[in-house]
Amino acid sequence: MGYATSRHIEGLPAPLQRVAGALVDWIPLAIVVVLWDLISGAVVATAILPAPGTVAGKIVELFVTGQVFSHLYISLFRVVVGLGLSIIAGILLGIGMARSDPVENFFDVFLAMTYPIPKTALVPLAILWLGVGTSTAILIVFLACLLPIVLNSYNAAGNVDQNLIWSAEMMGTEGRDVLLKVIFPATIPEILTGIRQAVPIAFVALVSAELIASNQGMGYLILTSGQIGNYPRMFANIVVISAVAFVAVRLFEEVRERWLVWT
């Protein structure tokens, strides 16, 4: 809460202050919604910009009738599988490259070459290989999320404090166990940072793949709603997928904070 807004509510008792503070903080959003409502139908036709009430009603309808669930489910499935695979592969690749020269020499050039390619440009290629549907979406999510996870775990595993490794070896940890018992745990905070960066990317990749190459999922639903002229449903679905992405990020941050109590 900004200083300017806090000044005016100081007279209130503490619990009320917090509520009032939260309200004041969110007034700008209310202004936007009110503006939206005023513009819709007056300046811009409701067909082009449905009123917020209409969209809200549509969201409720989507959930009550259950229309949204099959698409939402398939979208979530794609994100979870794609992201999950990229986490596994990313950690293995990142730590492997950091701790082994042959592995680094082998994969480095591929990372350097694919790093500057926006992964959504690979959707058509994925269509060539896997056709239109779930596998293509999963592949794109996987590719898009891989890099931040690899880079973060690579950097962290390369920078593990040598004293940690020595003290573990001194206490009898050997060979492969050093990787599992020292390097991997020491790398966890950065791995989680990588995943945190990957979560929003996963949703961008998902929606891209679904807009271009899918017959199901939220992206598909948004696109087809627009194509058949059902604009309230298009806006409603955008709100739904945005909310899901928002919740996913917050949820992950919550989990990370709980888990990383020791940092």
């Binding site: 959504t120 929003p200 949703f203 961008v204 998902l206 929606v207 891209s208 807009l211 939220m218 992206g219 948004i222 696109l223 709603s225 627009g226 194509q227 298009m234 806006f235 679905n237 955008i238 997928i241 945005s242 992405a245 928002f246 990020v249």
Partner: peptide, 12 residues
Amino acid sequence: PVPIISLIPVFM
């Protein structure tokens, strides 16, 4: 946090 890509149909 809005997956900005999802707004493409809106801009169309």
